[in-house]
Write a protein that binds this DNA or RNA. Structure first.
Lengths: 194, 194
DNA sequence: GTCTATAGGCAGATAGAC
DNA sequence: GTCTATCTGCCTATAGAC
């Protein structure tokens, strides 16, 4: 039996910021929103994160770290390429169920109003996803669960864009079933020809 | 020989607003930005568009109208399904060359901070695109230029998400060649098996 | 670490002269 | 239609007490 412990303030701030950015965008949320949510003052937030960019950077780092951990879990628990792709889709479903957009999709859209440091962090997230997806495509072609045309890297770029875009459209419409259908369609589109 | 005429103020305002939203987002641009760009005052803007929502709505209407017109041009000039899909991709390229994201992709991301009227307009844009893409898939299957698996509507949803997502990722990285590659990959993925 | 208080700026929006 | 001038409110950020 473990005791439920309250995470420290810094962690709670980042979690709140991450959620708010995923729902309202970096330019659509403020220190006041987080302060109200956590029941502390704006000044306390500035103690932990002097500038808003510091906060945004911490949110991306946390998000990318959690996502990478989820991918490692998939790698360890799911042997076939096609199943890994479906498991990847379910990570997007998890976010949508919390009414959240992918943090990096949101920040990508706002890119021009962000600092270079945040931009680079978002780019790193996408690059890591493409690398992982390319590995999945190679694996799936070896084990016979995936086919498709073109080099693994090109397919991986297509898949990343397709998942992110399907999520964006479905999220804006509040259409989770629609995302599930599109994700299935996508996986079948790179399945081997029968 | 036609005389180059300056568009009326209202039109110039909407054009400027549209461009700014595509580059910086609705929450990332202001009346002051437009005023500076056009050399008029904020008060003049409020004469034409009392609230920012009025302005956003006008921008979406214009954007959706221009896009629909471009789709009609494709319908009239391009007979084969697969070529229509490539022409569709080139519309995205045009925006990226102007360093702009799709207006409705941007507004979709900011959805939670927008008024219901703007949300509905964005939804209408996506729905029109899906209808057009489904028609293209049906046409391509008839003329033998497209194949793919699944019902045309499901493929159309996948294609819309894939193009919008590929655009978002490429735009955030300033990687136009990358978008071209992914668009080609996408078209080949729904081409008929050889 | 968290608070109160406040600075300084920019946002969207309005009044009224011309 | 466009201007000057201004209002009100929220934003990020800081100073200094506790």
């Amino acid at each position: 039996m473990t005791v439920a412990t309250m995470p420290d303030t810094r962690t709670r701030i980042v979690a709140s910021a991450q959620r708010l950015v995923q729902m309202r965008g970096f330019n659509g949320m403020s220190y006041a929103d987080i302060a109200a949510e956590l029941g502390i003052t704006k000044a306390a937030l500035h103690y932990h994160f002097p500038t808003k960019t510091d906060l945004g950077l911490a949110a991306v780092d946390r998000y990318a770290g959690d996502f990478a951990a989820a991918l490692r879990v998939i790698d360890e628990s799911t042997p076939r390429g096609k199943d890994r792709l479906s498991a990847y889709a379910s990570l997007y479903v998890d976010a949508l169920e919390g009414e959240r957009l992918c943090l990096c999709a949101m920040l990508a859209a706002e890119q021009r109003t962000l600092t270079p440091a945040v931009r680079r962090a978002v780019e790193g997230f996408f690059a890591a996803n493409v690398r992982w997806l390319a590995d999945v495509v190679r694996l799936g072609r070896r084990d016979g669960s995936l086919g498709g045309v073109g080099p693994p890297d090109a397919v991986a770029h297509m898949l990343l864009g397709a998942f992110e875009g399907a999520m964006l459209v479905a999220w804006s419409r509040g259409d989770l079933p629609g995302f599930r259908r599109t994700a299935r369609q996508l996986v079948e589109s790179v399945a081997p020809a029968r």
